[in-house]
Simulated assay, not measured.
Amino acid sequence: MRGIASLVLLTISNLFMTFAWYGHLHLFKKIPWFAKLGLVGVILVSWGLALFEYIFQVPANRLGFVENGGPFSLFQLKVIQEVVTLTVFTLCAVFIFKTDKLGWNHVAGFALLVAAVYVIFKKW
């Protein structure tokens, strides 16, 4: 249960992260008041969104970490976080931002990430 909770919280965290880091590049420009903001304003809005990223990220890692009763080691948590990050980013870029198309090289890269997850989780 702690592992599932950790994954859900990581996913929510990464939604906020994606909008904080990349939303201002395309999506937020469509909002009139946001489009008028200078760099400092954009940084402050992004920082505000990033606060919510951390509100979900920190509990996700605490719940998931083996020394806190969770199922994951530090390495496992990091690899999971990277896969969740790229998955959430890809879905946002393709379906929400609509700036990029999913290519064969992206699929190949994700397959390598799945291989990385396998290697990290494999008990040797």
Rank of each mutant, 00 (worst) to 15 (best):
I31V: 15
H26A: 13
W33D: 07
G23H: 07
V45W: 03
V58L: 11
I55N: 01
G41W: 01
L39R: 14
L25M: 14
K36E: 11
I43E: 06
W33Q: 12
G23S: 02
L37Q: 12
H26L: 10
L27G: 01
G23C: 02
L49Q: 05
F56M: 00
A50H: 10
G38L: 09
I31Q: 02
G23M: 07
F52K: 11
G41Y: 01
V40E: 08
V42A: 11
I55Q: 02
F34H: 10
G23V: 08
F28T: 11
F28M: 15
I31N: 02
F28D: 02
S46H: 02
L25V: 05
K30M: 11
E53I: 07
F28K: 01
V42D: 09
P32A: 09
H24N: 11
L49W: 00
P32N: 10
A50T: 07
L27Q: 08
H26Q: 09
F34N: 07
P32F: 03
L37K: 13
G41C: 04
L27R: 05
L27W: 12
F28L: 15
V40Y: 04
G48W: 02
L49D: 05
L37C: 03
L39C: 01
S46P: 04
G23Y: 03
G48H: 04
P59V: 11
L44H: 04
I43S: 04
L44I: 14
G23K: 02
L27S: 10
A35Y: 03
H24F: 06
L27M: 13
I43W: 07
L51W: 04
K30I: 07
H26M: 07
L49C: 05
K30T: 13
F52V: 12
G41T: 01
H24D: 06
L49I: 08
L39M: 14
F56H: 05
H24M: 12
S46D: 04
Y54P: 00
A50K: 04
I43N: 08
L51H: 06
V40H: 05
A35I: 03
P32H: 10
Y54F: 15
F52D: 06
L27P: 00
W47E: 12
V45E: 03
A35D: 14
L37T: 03
K30H: 09
V45Y: 00
H24T: 09
V42K: 14
I31C: 03
I31A: 05
V42E: 13
P59K: 08
Y54I: 13
V45D: 03
G41N: 01
A35W: 00
Q57E: 13
H26G: 11
H26K: 13
I43Y: 09
G41M: 04
V42C: 03
L37A: 07
A35T: 05
W47M: 14
A35L: 05
I43V: 15
F34Y: 15
L25W: 08
L44S: 11
E53M: 15
K36L: 07
H26N: 13
K36P: 00
K29D: 06
S46Y: 01
W33R: 12
F56C: 05
L25Y: 11
Q57I: 10
K36I: 04
K30P: 00
E53Y: 15
F56T: 01
I55L: 15
